[in-house]
Nucleic acid binder design. Structure first.
Lengths: 223, 223
DNA sequence: GCAAAAACCGACAAGCTTGTTTGTTATCGT
DNA sequence: ACGATAACAAACAAGCTTGTCGGTTTTTGC
């Protein structure tokens, strides 16, 4: 893992899941928590936030509900951890993908879009998006989600530019490209069941092309 | 209302709400149903699909739950009507907006994007989007939502091109532009609480610009 | 070893949601 | 005018969800 990844991941790494050198109980606890978080991700993806009951999560995780409530006293505690965990894992996947690209593929073919698109098709991002949309109409969820989401966007913007050095000279354009890619692809994800797959591929390519033009300065904005 | 509007709206007009020349009971019934639908829209926007209980809708509508279940025997019946109703009203707003544009504004300044964006900030679209995302994880809702959504996309694509005659020569590009605008703006709507307003405005302009380039053939796709 | 703490389990009360059912008032057709 | 029908109201049962509580097993510190 190189410098770039270290910085980003260090900022976003979830707490309470890194006790690898601790006692037996600590490690057992961490393992159980990860099992719970993975189960929660599955449930969020399949059933959505409001239908993801603590009962269901416990069943999928294969432990009793009482045991789960020992690790996460309330549903909010659990969801807060899910947010951190999914953000961390998605960033991990995204960075791995971008780092694996050759410079030419990344710059000329806008392959970063493809990586971003793929990272949005993961279980983790499905769960994250589910929370994002649910937070818009659930005050309790918004209270724990929005601060984390804003922090995440900030970290992503500030650090990920190291993975795209070709944007260094144009920070505003980079910020726009980042938001733009996220918005377009998230909109695409939402309509995945409605639109034909071919249309989705074309759309994805179009987004990549327009970002390429933005970078080359052929498609800008009035000041 | 001109020809264009007539065609589109005729295809999408909800059933059971057009009994204006009927008996007193009929008109009363229609009025009550509209009251219920408007209440449902408010609830969906504010609380999301899963928290929009029949109890809550009845309270907001100002009638008893029993009375509501007389008009809509089940929650699914009600939601199905909400889908048709919101699609109809959004299309109405959108068409009114586009018709009010001068040709120059529509073609050169891509003002259609601004209209589309504004139509997505309405109560009706918020409710529709809420149903769209909820349908992705709720099989019962998906059963009534997806068929209607696909029909809506088809009607929109087939008929709305009359409002944008400058695209007539390029049906593929038009289809792409349509999907693209919807995806990007819907993604923008979803992140509305997370991103700064200024960034949202810039993003909206960028989407308009890239569509303008697509129309001028300066930004196409490989076959 | 042994007490304390942590991991884990099962059951409970309180509240909410949905659809059904029974009853009341107002309007329609003849 | 009068029976039928529609609009509306209220109460009920069945099921689900959340958080709390007492109890059991396993690990840790001494």
């Amino acid at each position: 893992m190189d410098d770039i990844s270290m910085r980003v991941l260090a900022q976003l790494e979830p707490e309470g899941l890194d006790a690898e050198g601790q006692s037996w109980q600590q490690r057992k606890s961490v393992q159980t928590r990860i099992t719970i978080l993975e189960a929660a991700i599955d449930c969020l993806q399949k059933h959505g936030y409001r239908s993801t009951t603590t009962q269901l999560i416990a069943e999928v995780a294969g432990i009793s509900r009482g045991a789960m409530l020992h690790h996460y006293a309330t549903k909010q505690d659990l969801i807060a951890s899910v947010i951190d965990y999914t953000v961390y894992k998605r960033m991990e996947v995204f960075l791995d993908g971008v780092r694996a690209l050759k410079d030419s593929a990344r710059i000329d073919e806008m392959a970063g879009i493809e990586i971003s698109w793929r990272s949005m098709l993961t279980r983790e991002f499905s769960a994250y998006l589910e929370l994002a949309v649910a937070a818009r109409t659930d005050p309790d969820l918004a209270a724990i989600f929005l601060p984390r989401a804003r922090r995440y966007v900030k970290s992503e913007l500030a650090e990920l530019i190291r993975a795209f050095p070709e944007w260094t000279e144009d920070p505003d354009g980079y910020a726009l490209a980042m938001d733009y890619a996220n918005a377009a692809l998230e909109g695409l994800v939402i309509n995945r069941d409605i639109w034909a797959e071919r249309d989705q591929r074309i759309l994805c390519q179009f987004v990549g092309q327009s970002i390429a033009m933005l970078r080359r300065g052929e498609l800008g904005l009035p000041p």
